[in-house]
Amino acid sequence: MDILNALVAFLNFVFIPAAAYGAQLALGALGVTLIYGILRFSNFAHGDTMAFGTAITILVTWGLQALGISLGPLPTALLALPVGIAATALLVLATDRAVYRFYRVQKAAPIILVMASVGVMFLMNGLTRLLIGVDEQRFADGERFVINVRDFKAMTGLAEGLALKTTQLLTLVIAILVVWALFWFLNRTKSGKAMRAYSDNEDLALLSGIDPEKVVRLTWIIAAALATIAGVLYGLDKAFKPFNYFQILLPIFAAAIVGGLGNPLGAIAGGFVVAFSEVAITYPWLKIAGYLFPGWQPDGLLQLLGTEYKFAVSFVILIVVLLFKPTGLFRGKSV
């Protein structure tokens, strides 16, 4: 029984939260890695793109709620999500046209695009603040749990409960669907292959008749969609606060680099590696150890690092991977 209890506690406190968080990071890292692979720079504005998309989605959600429209047990935000994606796509296409395209045509060094993305980051940050302010917003509605602790205990008779939030399940399902769709698109369709070709060799893609501007537009639209979905799922699961979306840039970059920048498969793996390490290292294992070794009475919480240092975990993983495998877990394009 104790082993079962330990397993349930592990699932409840480590596995499920880490899986949901990993899926959110993976979606974010996919966007970063696509931009890096195709537009050839790290987009510092990605966190704020996520925040903007989420802010729009929240505003539309409020509108729908005011009209009395809901999705029953599912969060209303899902209905608003397409609007959020569309608005974000329009915004990033507009910034590309107004900012990035000029440097691309000039064949300017990529570092200038990085600098420009810092400028765009300020703009989007300000825009999101204008739209929705800086306060924390909770916008998850509908059924809160798929499985809640009390029902689980009653059902199984275990001392330890298991909760699965709707948002967590939703995150995993949506992430799987999105990733499947993205890979199908990149590997099976002509436009997706054109994107990969452009990423591999811009000149040859041009000479093969691929329209670079079309590839770039497509990339931005996909990145905007990924960012908005990641942002909304993260916000549903935790809460929406613009500054957190700025801070999540570090684990997202870490995930993308750990997996190998420019490699979509790597971004997904990197997202889960970072998320699982963060949760595992900042979780107090005392409870689980108590089930497994009933006789042992340690005097601490068996927590390797405080949760405040979760960013340190992404950082250390990043450094370790770079030291031992400079191209990332899956071969990226950077080295």
């Binding site: 900012v99 000029f102 200038i112 600098m115 420009a116 810092v118 400028g119 765009v120 980051m121 300020f122 703009l123 989007m124 940050n125 300000g126 825009l127 603040r129 204008l130 302010g133 800086v134």
Partner: peptide, 21 residues
């Protein structure tokens, strides 16, 4: 009017982008 204090972020972004360009 309430959120106009956030204009400074937009202003800084614009300044950086204009200088770069």
């Amino acid at each position: 009017l309430d959120s106009s204090a956030h204009m400074r972020f937009i202003a800084m972004g614009l300044v950086l982008l204009l200088v770069l360009r």
